[in-house]
Design a protein around this nucleic acid. Sequence first.
DNA 1: CCCTTATCGTTGCAAATGCAACGTATTATG
DNA 2: CATAATACGTTGCATTTGCAACGATAAGGG
Lengths: 227, 227
Amino acid sequence: MEKTILLNCPLFADIEKSDLDSLLICLQARFYDYKRDDFIFRVGEHAVNVGVVLSGSANVVQEDFWGGRTILAHVEPGGLFGESFSCAQAQQLPVSVVAAQDSTIMLLDYRKIVKECSSACVFHSQLIFNMLRVLAQKNILLTKKMEHISRRTVREKLLSFLSEQAVSDKSNKITLPFNRQELADYLCVERSALSRELSAMQKDGLLEYRKNLFTLNSRHEITELPQ
Amino acid sequence: MEKTILLNCPLFADIEKSDLDSLLICLQARFYDYKRDDFIFRVGEHAVNVGVVLSGSANVVQEDFWGGRTILAHVEPGGLFGESFSCAQAQQLPVSVVAAQDSTIMLLDYRKIVKECSSACVFHSQLIFNMLRVLAQKNILLTKKMEHISRRTVREKLLSFLSEQAVSDKSNKITLPFNRQELADYLCVERSALSRELSAMQKDGLLEYRKNLFTLNSRHEITELPQ
DNA sequence: CCCTTATCGTTGCAAATGCAACGTATTATG
DNA sequence: CATAATACGTTGCATTTGCAACGATAAGGG
């Protein structure tokens, strides 16, 4: 069993390896093997389970009104799925989850996670902590991204993103964690439009860059420029 | 004290009015009055508190690299703030919270919320439930909005949004919860561009609408059309 | 070393969008 | 009823963007 992957799973952070087995028994964890393209969750099901990918991978897919399918997320080993819908107590799952490869999945009943067990098992407190952290961190990531991509122009999206990096790094020198294509995808714009705008911003004196090292200029330096 | 507002606060859902007082004591709730523009939280503080607006209102504001301020959220009575950062155990608050009017605010230590109290107070379990639901629901809302506004064109954004409504209503007839301006803001586009595109989509046979009642056509009806 | 591949910038062009302004229908208000 | 306010569609125009294609450079593999 690939339970070692759980040690790197955010839901089981700060839980001792030696405690894991008894915890999983307490949670009544269930393990299933799926073939590629098997459904793990189906749209419309009552959301009570949280899934953990042990091996293989899974896709969270959504079907639109016309029957088109969109992959909303790809979950790798150690990753969770379904936790938002379970914790939100959704009556109907709005998405399906499908095995992207032959996979082993652990399913947990969300109520077993968040309710103290009768044996007052000490892990529950940590588990709840972890679940809250997982949801909250995802929340923060989504909110940040939203701030950037709600801007109307490529320039504004870039400035929003770069500013956030600079502020969190407390420096005007930023090393991007993305290459150009990835940055373009993250900001939901074309790579060529991104490159074009970066050039223009450099020409306008807003910033300088070489490869992935960016330097933001202060307002003073910018307003000093001609024009 | 305006504690009745707490009965409508999602964090205190399904908690009896008669239990509220002892719960707040157990949580060591603190109450503060702020004048307009007073800081409730400051950037950089360690995130341990969750705020609840009892009266007045509060703005979550972010300062960018150049000193510009953006209002990320406006919180009305009954609303929460800071819960994501506390639950994510952020070492540094990336935002400030400022009283938008003279306000009364209740502050709770997040650790007191999520940790069972020594007196095994029965409310804690419900409170944790509620906190998880709040975070998870916000998560779902953000994810949905993200799906829509990550599309490149106004038409795609509209189709994504309308499809979601139709699927969740299980009907091709949709009554919008927004007026045009609100829909445009939600999808991060211009109102005029939205109107223009709606007209074009109707002409192309994708949908029909009158006021806020929209009818989506099936793919069959669409592909049947000339051209 | 050569060849392939990946990354990034550039550019022409058509299409989409933001912006501003205006007209009309509907609703609210005195 | 008269008037104002609001919501919505429309349109002209300048700008921005997506899209496709190409070239340069760097990195990696045989």
